Amino acid sequence: MPSLVKTLTYRQAAARTRRSIRTINRWRKRGMPMTWELRGGQRVRVVEERILLAWWRDRMTADPVHQIRLRRALAAQAAQDDDPSPAPTERRSGTPRGAHDR
């Protein structure tokens, strides 16, 4: 019976998280659990997708650049909620713009 757990190679894991293969290797060295699997007659190191994505989420929330982007987005949204744009006003006279300049 085939396993229902999706496993990814280094290259697939890097593509899935939009990180380099070197980053995936660094995560493995720092403790991300990876196993060996036979693919095409060769042993390949693989990681479960759910474990990979959990590591990626942890790194994203700890990433200073990501935190700054989140703060800016929240501040912009708060400013937009506090200061609704004024409704467009109608012109009082029926004359088109620039007609008074003639």
Rank of each mutant, 00 (worst) to 15 (best):
P2R: 13
P2V: 04
S3T: 05
S3R: 01
V5E: 10
V5N: 02
T7S: 06
L8R: 00
T9K: 00
Y10V: 11
Y10H: 06
R11Q: 12
Q12W: 02
A13V: 02
A13R: 00
A14M: 01
A14S: 01
R18G: 13
R18L: 14
R18I: 09
R19A: 03
R19Q: 10
R19G: 02
S20W: 03
S20L: 04
I24K: 01
R26N: 09
W27C: 01
R28Q: 03
R28L: 05
R28H: 04
R28V: 07
K29V: 02
M32D: 02
M32Q: 03
T35I: 01
L38H: 08
R45V: 05
R45S: 05
R45D: 00
E48P: 15
E48I: 08
E49M: 07
R50E: 11
I51N: 13
L52W: 08
A54D: 09
W56K: 09
R57N: 07
D58C: 10
D58E: 14
D58Y: 09
D58L: 12
R59F: 08
M60P: 01
M60Y: 02
T61H: 14
T61C: 06
A62L: 10
D63T: 08
P64L: 12
V65N: 02
R69V: 04
R72M: 08
A73F: 10
A73I: 10
L74W: 15
A75Q: 14
A76R: 11
A79H: 08
A79G: 03
Q80Y: 14
Q80M: 15
D81I: 05
D81R: 04
D82W: 03
D82Q: 02
D83M: 04
P84M: 03
S85L: 15
S85H: 10
P86Q: 09
P86M: 09
P86V: 05
T89D: 12
T89V: 15
R91P: 11
R91F: 12
R92V: 08
R92P: 05
R92T: 10
S93K: 07
G94A: 10
G94I: 12
G94V: 09
G94S: 09
T95K: 11
T95Y: 12
R97Q: 03
R97D: 05
G98M: 14
A99Y: 08
H100G: 09
